[in-house]
């Protein structure tokens, strides 16, 4: 008797194998696996959105909530109905107000989070990098703090794209900006190199996990 877990394992194994077939090249097996994945994911996400977003926040309160809450929820209900019109091009304009509310609230939240969660704390941390109490050696603090400060400043300058007219009718950044930006580019390269190593490590771990899954499937691993 084949157990459901074995069937699930075989199916997962086959899907993994079909995706791995992409190493040889694009092929129908890969496409089948991808389309199955997209279909299942979309259906699952739709079910999740219904049960874990609309139901607890809209449907359930509308059904069992107090009158005031139900009245207030009429607005998001209407907005949700209008937003659904976005799926049909002819009626997509009706969903614009709902999208406007989403974007407006999201922008406000992003602004608040960026200011309170990143800008001030990170600027403060850059300044605090020279806190002599953070390390036993003031020299180490100064060196590390200096590098961090240089890294932050030059990286920001690197993304400074203002330029002035140059000879020949072209535009060019100021020389000082160019020099600082070059240093910022070095810092960026180092940062991206570290990130690349992290991404490869994550992908390598995923590969190992898949191989481990195969080993487990065939009883070679644990």
């Amino acid at each position: 008797m084949i157990s459901p877990d074995l069937i699930a394992g075989i199916f997962a194994f086959l899907l993994s194998l079909m995706i791995f077939s992409y190493l040889v090249g694009d092929n129908p097996l890969f496409r089948v696996a991808v389309h199955i994945f997209v279909g299942v994911s979309a259906g699952y996400v739709a079910a999740v959105a219904w049960w874990q977003a609309l139901w607890p926040d809209l449907i359930f309160p509308l059904v069992s909530g107090p009158a005031l809450q139900r009245a207030l929820l009429a607005v998001p209900l209407v907005l949700s109905g209008l937003l659904l019109m976005k799926a049909w091009p002819a009626l997509s304009r009706l969903g614009t107000p709902s999208m406007a509310i989403l974007v407006g609230i999201g922008s406000a939240v992003a602004i608040g989070g960026a200011v309170t969660g990143t800008l001030f704390p990170q600027i403060g941390a850059t300044i605090n990098a020279f806190d002599l109490h953070k390390a036993a050696s003031p020299f180490e603090v100064l060196i590390n703090g200096g590098f961090i400060l240089a890294g932050v400043a030059t990286t920001l300058v690197y993304f400074h794209f203002s330029a002035g007219p140059a000879a020949g009718g072209s535009v060019k950044r100021f020389s000082l900006i160019e020099i600082i930006a070059f240093v910022g580019g070095i810092f960026l390269a180092i940062t991206l190199g570290v990130l690349f190593a992290g991404v490869y490590s994550a992908a390598l771990t995923a590969l190992i996990e898949r191989l481990h899954f195969f080993g487990t499937f065939f009883g070679l691993g644990n």
């Binding site: 979309a42 259906g43 996400v45 739709a46 959105a49 219904w50 874990q52 977003a53 609309l54 926040d57 809209l58 929820l73 607005v75 998001p76 907005l79 949700s80 937003l83 659904l84 976005k86 799926a87 969903g95 709902s98 509310i101 989403l102 609230i105 999201g106």
Partner: peptide, 14 residues
């Protein structure tokens, strides 16, 4: 409201 609309937007995408 925004959470509700975000859930609806997911359905729109589907």
């Amino acid at each position: 409201w925004s959470i509700i609309l975000a859930g609806t937007a997911t359905l729109v995408g589907v």
